[in-house]
Amino acid sequence: MEAFLHQVLAGLATGGIYASLALALVMIYQATHLVNFAQGEMAMVSTYIAWSLINAGMPYWPAFLLTVGISFVMGVVIERVVIRPVENAPVLGVVTVFIALLVILNSVTGWIYTYTIKSFPSPFPKEMALGRYMSPHELGAIGITLVVLLALYVFFRFTPLGLAMRAAAQNPVSSRLVGIRVGWMLALGWGLAAAVGAVAGMMVAPIVYLDPNMMGGILLYAFAAALVGGIDSPMGAVIGGFTVGVLENVLGAFVIGNELKLSVALVLIIGVLLFKPSGFFGKVHVTRV
């Protein structure tokens, strides 16, 4: 029983990371109806930036915040420079651009930092009272994830800018007619997604270690999470993230073994697409004409 509880709690910790990345995917999907395959690699680059800052002697939290800021700018710049020119291109063209971005970010990082696996520090203490069930880093990662999710919820729900971003994502024509600069809202969305991804990267790196391919598996879990929740539902992505995290851990520990863990994500992706393509929280939009 204790071992089971331990697996569930550890699953919640990684689940929070999947949830963040899934949320980043959903944010971009809502605005563009495309899945950003490079989301994971962008998070990986952010994590390397954090690693460089910390190695240069910066304390963890300032480096954390600075990385989030830099990642935000990186997201905005990528949207403006790389995505904007293919805005009206056919879907396959844009997907190709996403995959190119993935490969480029991966190779350039490998070229700069080498493919040698590095350890990445956790800001949380090594030992603590609850240590029997959960490591301090796992607990801390859950806490950070929840803070990020709450901040995003408040931003989108209660601020005029958040409202404008939602409006621009779902109805660009009407948004222009009320004076919203739709292009900039998309860029801001990319910035936010990159910032959220950066947090996910920094939280997962102490667990999976830092290397240019670290986000490959994570992104698959995040896809599964986003699909389980419904690719157009932010709330669904979050719940999906935690669900996938727990499932993966529990099944991996007790049923299929650690080697087959990743197939949980693939089975989920195929299962959801076959039997419930809108996911469990995908909104059914009611429209009367």
Binding site: S174, V178, I180
Partner: peptide, 13 residues
């Protein structure tokens, strides 16, 4: 209309 937003959100926009 912004179909998925509330009436009030539509007005605020």
């Amino acid at each position: 209309t912004f179909l998925n937003l509330s009436t009030e959100e539509n007005l605020r926009l």
